[in-house]
Amino acid sequence: MSNVTSQMEDVFSEEAQAHSPNVVGDELARLVAAHPEVVVLSADMGAALGKVREVAPERYFDLGIAETNTMSVAAGLAASGFVPYVVSMAPFGMLKCAEQIRTDLASTKMPVRIVARLSGLAMGFFGASHHAIEDLAIARTITNLTVCAPSDSASTIALLRSTYDVDGPVLIRTSEGIARQVYDAVPTIPRGCFVEVRPGDDAAVIATGVGVSIALEAAEVLAGEGVQVRVLDAAYLKPLDERAVVAAAGTGRILTVEEHHVMGGLGTMVAEVLGRHGLGARLEVHALPDEDLEVGVPAALLERYGLTPAGVTAQLRHLLAG
């Protein structure tokens, strides 16, 4: 096995799905078994959905490499009383389908759950076409759309499960590049709430997705030096937990961490809250730069852009020194 392959597991293959934890596929199979109105649509992502096909083959639909059609088909099923979960690759299922999501799912308040897999830089090896780093900026402007992002496998289960009965459509931004678990057990995450995964009052990190586990490691490093950093998991991006942001501002220093473009994502959202409330906390945004990004395996890309415990630790030191 080449070095590249070992780092960038082929997450699409049946073999890989059979031998690695398939959190999304397993939880969707549970949802299909538990709720007769749940249907699962796949835009050529069926390798991960074998259990769904076993549990309820009649409620599994592969729509092929045709994401826009898939979203609108889901809308038709939802308008007929079903609750569709649509599984697709984030750059295509979300970015390409922004208009279908807006028009057919959100304006109509259809209960469709979009499971956008491999978001951020998770498919970075395949090229810039496969980066999905603008999705939060777009998604947050879509009225009626709930936007959430799990930070590990336990919160992936929690969000898939708990958004089942949310009114209107939900975007679940998942990433397969998370090495470390954030939660010991499946957490309860109320809609629109951050989760404090580490207490601290010297500074606050508000992170989302892969950023959360990275931030936790950085906070542990600083704790060894006597600095207590609060770490908040921004599991929901919309609605945004404004109260948690305001409370974080009480530390005087906020760092946001996200595998997303520096414009329009979590950092922007937090800055808006601080501005609206007239709060003067120092804010630093640790995100992907507004430039042509490199192409490479996810681990190399995260390293390149400082989305590592060392990178976030350095950024926190900078923040604390200011």
Binding site: T68, S72, V73, A74, A75, G76, L77, A79, T103, T108
Partner: peptide
């Protein structure tokens, strides 16, 4: 959402045949 009797919203051309596919699948189910 505003008018009884409208089975699905439209306006963005090219979407409704897909929505119809979804409704057809739902009838099958």
């Amino acid at each position: 959402r505003k008018v009884p009797g409208v089975d699905f919203s439209s306006g963005s051309l090219g979407h409704n045949l897909s929505v119809g596919v979804g409704m057809g699948l739902a009838q099958r189910l």
